[in-house]
Design a protein around this nucleic acid. Structure first.
Length: 267
DNA sequence: AATCTCTCCAACCGCGATGCG
DNA sequence: TCGCATCGCGGTTGGAGAGAT
């Protein structure tokens, strides 16, 4: 028996996400949280499958995402972790708050691999290529012998997986260069690339919205997506919500779904 | 200026793991 | 315990942009 597709493919949109789709998804999740990805696109009024929404949220829209290139120190840590964990990107990513497995995987495949090749290191065992003979180093990848420290972390299985759930009780871990990153985030808003995820920051255990960035974004969107506003207009968040959210699915509709949908109290 | 090649990364796909009735 | 639905992970692809010719 063939496996059923994860969702109804017919009529679903694929490919790059539009600003409006990002906004709908972000809006929905910030207001309602995540319980079942399958119903998220339906309730958010998106013609996407849940899987696609999940990926978009995790890799791009999550408010706690760290942006910008990897530092040398981060690269070193990735190499170290990779030597112990192999291609277990989600495990490696868990050591980098704000980084996604996809981001690390991409960085590995495009940069670090080359760097190691250039240095004459074996990508799997991270040893000089010449020293690799009949070692079954591939076992290291498929069944890596983890170091004790990492293994300990691995085995704390009681810890909830929080990949896709907005943490409202845990303070966001802030790195030394977060300020730099935030500045960079703002810069992207003034450029043509609109970065919705960067509008939101975790502060005092809450997600807060940067008003300056927000209005900048709105200016950008108003030029490209919405005909109702002109760049420079200032609007309230409520107004944004009213204007930019598809009225097909009124939020009131969701208030009855608290029991099944909401993971946490509304912020 | 036009074309080709390369690089990067967002997004997709398939499958194993997990949850639940 | 079983089977189905859904989630999450890792591998892969494809397109946009940059750089080279």
């Amino acid at each position: 028996m063939g496996r059923k597709p994860c969702c109804e493919k017919i009529g679903l949109k694929r490919g790059p996400w539009t600003i409006e789709e990002d906004h709908r998804l972000m809006n929905f999740i910030l207001n309602n949280g995540i319980h079942c990805w399958r119903v998220v696109p339906k309730l958010a009024g998106l013609l996407r499958c849940g899987k696609s929404c999940r990926l978009r949220w995790i890799n791009y829209l999550r408010p706690d995402l760290k942006r910008g290139g990897f530092t040398d120190a981060e690269e070193d840590t990735i190499m170290e972790l990779h030597s112990q964990l192999g291609n277990r990107w989600s495990k490696i990513a868990s050591h980098f708050p704000g980084r996604t497995d996809n981001e690390i995987k991409n960085h590995w495949n495009t940069k670090i691999k080359k760097k190691m090749k250039h240095l004459g290191l074996n990508q799997a065992a991270h040893e000089p290529i010449n020293s690799i003979t009949n070692q079954t180093e591939s076992k290291q990848i498929t069944n890596p012998n983890m170091s004790s420290t990492i293994k300990e972390k691995e085995e704390t299985k009681d810890q909830p997986k929080d990949d896709v759930i907005i943490e409202t009780t845990k303070p966001l871990i802030v790195s030394n260069n977060d300020e730099e990153i935030q500045t960079e985030n703002c810069k992207t808003l003034y450029a043509e690339e609109v970065d919705i995820g960067s509008l939101f920051t975790m502060q005092d255990n809450e997600i807060s919205i940067s008003s300056s960035s927000f209005s900048s974004l709105y200016s950008n969107i108003s030029r490209s997506e919405s005909s109702s506003y002109l760049a420079g207009d200032s609007i309230s968040l409520e107004q944004w919500d009213l204007d930019m959210t598809d009225p097909l699915v009124p939020w009131d509709l969701f208030t009855n779904l608290d029991d099944t949908l909401f993971l946490y109290d509304k912020m």
